[in-house]
Amino acid sequence: MSIITLANISKTYSEKTAYKTIALDDISLAVTEGEFLAISGPSGSGKTTLLNLIGGLDSPSKGRIILNNNDITGLKENELSQIRLHHIGFIFQAYNLIPVLTAMENMEYILMLQRVKKQERQQRVKDVASRLKIDELLHKKPSEMSGGQQQRVAIARAIVSKPKLILADEPTANLDSKTSDILLELMKELNEEHKMTFIFATHDSSVIQKAKRHISLLDGMVLDDTTK
């Protein structure tokens, strides 16, 4: 069953000016539940734009995006934020934890937005922290953690609300290869154990190697779509 379907998606920037840029050109693809998908391509190929459109952070110039059988194209920002809150987890290249909150609070924060009760919140945070081996980081603020630790917490934040879809934009770009491998392994386990769908936008060959499906983009078009 498709968790996400893109139908003839195009994204053009500065459309009515001389600086018109086509970031995505008539892309159609479907992602089924539980996939571990890597989207790669050179800089400017449109992989991050594609991820942003799937996550409802940006809107397409043409085409439709279907998430969980719901057309999210043209939804208002408030409706999109609710979809992101309940159905999508984000992992960013620069970790992007809320700097004034501790690791525990960063994880708990999304559950609070979802209005999950305190007892359940704390239980879920502890479970995820234990699973990702970040128990000792829970009371630290992002500024007190290394890059790898922060990304681990960012992954924990993305999965603690049990979303069906996780979008990861260059999650290993700022990490050393060892930490990168550990985190990728972790995400792979989560994918296999909980059937969470992971979509990566990446340059990293180790991510591409671990992916079950690999889409290669060039100049906003799908160059190759391979499933292992």
Binding site: G55, L57, E77, N78, S81, Q82, R84, L85, H86, F90, F92, N96, I98, Y109, I110, L113, Q114, R157
Partner: peptide, 11 residues
């Protein structure tokens, strides 16, 4: 980032 993880603008 807050908007991306599900914050409403009102919040």
């Amino acid at each position: 980032i807050m908007l991306a993880i599900g914050h409403k603008f009102k919040q």
